[in-house]
């Protein structure tokens, strides 16, 4: 369903800050895959997700979504197929707008925007049901400004927005990293629920190896702009953190450097 063909990206080419972020990534996702992505700092995880979302142009390579070449498609048009949640809880929602208005904007994703009323009555029921599912008490606060919510609540609302209209692909960029452990666990639980219920094909970056092993049916590890480990199915479900670290040492010829990933 998603196919990345040898994609490359270098930032600040030709300057002292040159950073080769993606060195030719090849990846094929199957329908319904829930892939967790791990890797040290600067491994290219977020760059990979941004490449898929179309935040900037690729230097080289192709991105196919359900067979359609989207490499040259601008970010806002590609959004029709994608649901995205960012690391920063402030980024996924409009703080000055109400919860229902935010959800309504997500509901319009991929459709022509018209002069019809933004928050439709019929949709409100759907929003309430979806918010109930979060179990955060937000179903009674439809008209609250999102800026009044906590980081975890905002991230949960962003998840709902991202999953609205059954996107072809859900991109989660360390979406629990900025939350405290308890809230992070809750948001992850909600993620699992939404992904399984709607059978969404998902790419989830995490810095937590345990989470990466526990969730999803496939695990990818990135290192210096390449995917170096790709395990799925039976093999993945038996993985332990120690196995992963050993695999990393073998594949990269060095120690795993991100303390953050090992400790958490």
């Amino acid at each position: 369903m998603l196919e990345l063909k040898n994609i490359k990206k270098t930032f600040n080419a030709g300057t002292i800050n040159e950073k080769v972020a993606l060195k030719g990534v090849n990846l094929v996702l199957n329908d319904g895959d829930f892939v967790t992505v791990i890797g040290g700092n600067g491994a290219g995880k977020s760059t990979l997700l941004n490449a898929i979302a179309g935040v900037w142009r690729l230097d080289q390579g192709k991105i196919l979504l359900d067979g359609q070449d989207v490499t040259a498609m601008p970010e806002y048009k590609r959004a029709k197929f994608l649901g995205r949640v960012f690391q920063d809880p402030m980024k996924g929602t409009a703080a000055d707008m109400q919860i229902d208005e935010n959800l309504a904007i997500a509901k319009m994703r991929g459709k022509r925007h018209t002069l019809r009323w933004g928050v439709k009555k019929a949709d409100k029921k759907e929003f309430v049901e979806a918010l109930k599912m979060l179990d955060l008490g937000l179903e009674n606060r439809l008209t609250s400004k999102v800026g009044l919510l906590s980081g975890g609540q905002r991230q949960a609302v962003t998840l709902l927005m991202a999953a609205m209209n059954q996107p072809k692909l859900l991109l989660l960029d360390e979406h629990t990293a900025a939350l405290d452990p308890k809230t992070a666990a809750k948001v992850l639980e909600i993620t699992e629920k939404i992904v399984t219920e709607q059978k969404l094909t998902t790419l989830m970056i995490t810095h937590n190896m345990k989470d990466a092993i526990k969730h999803g049916n496939r695990l990818i590890m990135m290192h210096e702009g390449r995917t170096i480990i790709d395990v799925s199915g039976e093999e993945k479900s038996k993985l332990t953190v120690e196995d992963l670290l050993e695999m990393f040492t073998k594949a990269s010829g060095g120690e795993f450097t991100s303390d953050r990933a090992i400790l958490s």
Binding site: L82, A94, A95
Partner: peptide, 23 residues
Amino acid sequence: GTEIGCTLRATGNNEQMVKAQGV
């Protein structure tokens, strides 16, 4: 209050979010 109006308000509020929502 319309669909277009909602996205206009969101544009000034959070550009990144609005882009991710296909605006």
